[in-house]
């Protein structure tokens, strides 16, 4: 009897987790800008390569990550398509310092970084190409175009 109850509860929890993850997966979210925190800024030293001329797409990956490959393909396509956009892939395991600094819990996690190194948007899970392109647009224009009162918090 206990076993049947445990089985039922486990399956219900599984369905809830499954739909919750599916809903959130790959969603490109806005990132609150903390202007005073230098650690929140991505530098070329962090990445080991120069930032993109306009936008850098920083992808955290691990060897044990199913959607990382598809994510790589999408970001690569966007970088090819939109001039000034660079795609940088980081092996999360060898850069745990960055993983902790940018609070990466899952792979793939994508940071959309503007020319000044600010993380404008982020997504975990496989993002949709259209969402990435839209986020790149926001990063190029600067966050002030999306929300005018963000500069007030300086």
């Amino acid at each position: 009897m206990v076993g049947i109850v445990v089985l039922g509860v486990t399956l219900v929890v599984g369905v809830i987790i499954g739909f919750a993850v599916r809903r959130r997966d790959g969603k490109v979210r806005a990132v609150k800008q903390v202007v005073s925190d230098a650690r929140a800024v991505v530098t070329s030293d962090d990445l080991g390569v120069e930032l993109g001329e306009r936008v850098t797409l920083v992808q955290f990956s691990t060897a044990f990550c199913q959607p990382c490959r598809a994510t790589r393909r999408i970001l690569h396509d966007v970088a090819e398509m939109v001039p000034g956009v660079r795609h940088v892939e980081i092996d999360a395991e060898s850069r745990l310092d960055l993983v902790r600094r940018f609070d990466v819990m899952r792979t793939p996690t994508v940071l959309v970084v503007d020319v000044a190194g600010n993380v404008v948007k982020r997504a975990s899970g496989l993002p949709r190409k259209a969402d990435v392109i839209a986020a790149v647009g926001v990063a190029v224009d600067g966050p002030s175009h999306e929300s005018s009162h963000q500069s007030d918090s300086v």
């Binding site: 993850v21 691990t62 990550c65 199913q66 395991e93 993983v99 899952r106």
Partner: peptide
């Protein structure tokens, strides 16, 4: 759901 929970745990364990 095609969700690999063991894989998700990998980075969290490494962290």
């Amino acid at each position: 759901f095609g969700l690999c929970l063991g894989c998700e745990m990998y980075l969290i364990i490494r962290r």
